[in-house]
């Protein structure tokens, strides 16, 4: 009864009401930020006295914002490629291997995801100071790769679980060499997992703040670092504009992912 939607009785309006409130709670801050980015009030008064594009103009007029966005994009792109490639190999090894300690290894690969990022950030920062990688693009990439990789291993690993190894064997008997079979058959067959891995890896790097704060230098900042640094000064509406662009970007990615899923079904 309690799990039959039609038979919930008085519980139903209660649950629906609560869910509606939670939805508002989850969506309103996002809507609110988007609205304020077009509001004229420097003090972010709501509702805004009038509407304006000046925060966006200020955002685009400052080359440091653009530069940090490009830095973010570059790092996220490289991290995505490396994460998918290394993650595919690792997932393949974990999926197909029967070597000793396989389960322990899987757990180890996923630890960077559950560990407090600040611990990893501080530890890497110490190491990079010694290696001279602090404040470099390479340092950034390594740091973000560590937290992106678990997403790739999980996404691609799940896809490989659902992929029948016999299909690869069939390709091999058809005359394809093992690697040819993997690239021409396995990779396309698990492409949804690879796509998910790419999106998650990209977002993991693109949105990452804590590691970035430690890896950044005055001349090398990602977008989140730039937002962070500005936020610590004041609550300028320019950040609302930057946030709105990020939110639009997120929605775009979600739509892309949804379209991709739909395309796979058809």
């Amino acid at each position: 009864m309690l799990l039959d939607f039609e038979k919930l009785g008085i519980l139903r309006p209660f649950l629906i009401g609560l869910t509606a409130l939670v939805c508002l709670f989850l969506i309103l801050p996002i809507v609110f930020i988007a609205a304020l980015s077009f509001g004229s009030s420097q003090w972010l008064i709501f509702p805004p006295p009038s509407w304006t594009f000046k925060w966006y103009q200020m955002l685009f007029a400052d080359p440091r914002w653009l530069y940090s966005a490009l830095t973010s994009l570059k790092i996220a792109a490289i991290v995505t490629v490396l994460s998918v490639v290394i993650g595919f190999l690792a997932a393949l090894g974990l999926n197909r291997g029967s070597f000793f300690g396989r389960e322990a290894l899987r757990a180890l690969f996923l630890t960077p995801m559950i560990l407090p990022v600040v611990v990893l950030a501080v530890a890497l920062y110490a190491l990079f100071l010694q290696l001279g990688l602090a404040g470099t693009t390479v340092g950034f990439i390594i740091a973000h790769l560590l937290i992106a990789l678990p997403f790739s291993i999980i996404s691609i690993g799940n896809a490989l679980e659902g992929f029948d190894k016999s299909i690869e064997d069939a390709a091999i008997l058809c005359g394809a060499s093992p690697w040819e079979a993997r690239i021409r058959v396995t990779v396309p067959a698990v492409s949804h997992g690879i796509f998910a891995a790419a999106i998650f890896s990209f977002l993991a790097s693109w949105d990452e703040v804590v590691l970035a704060i430690f890896m950044a230098s005055p001349t090398l900042q990602t977008l989140p670092v730039k937002i962070w640094a500005t936020l610590r000064q004041d609550l300028t509406p320019v950040i609302a504009a930057a946030s709105t662009i990020l939110i639009a970007f997120t929605i775009l990615l979600m739509v892309l992912a949804a379209l991709f899923r739909k395309g796979r079904k058809a």
Partner: peptide
């Protein structure tokens, strides 16, 4: 809605709450 809020940049979300919760918010 849940996924959108989850995927939205952490700083953007935190900034939203800073603005919403401030004294004049």
């Amino acid at each position: 809605i849940i996924i959108l809020s989850m995927w939205t940049n952490l700083l953007a979300r935190t900034y939203a709450w800073m603005v919403l919760l401030q004294r004049t918010g």
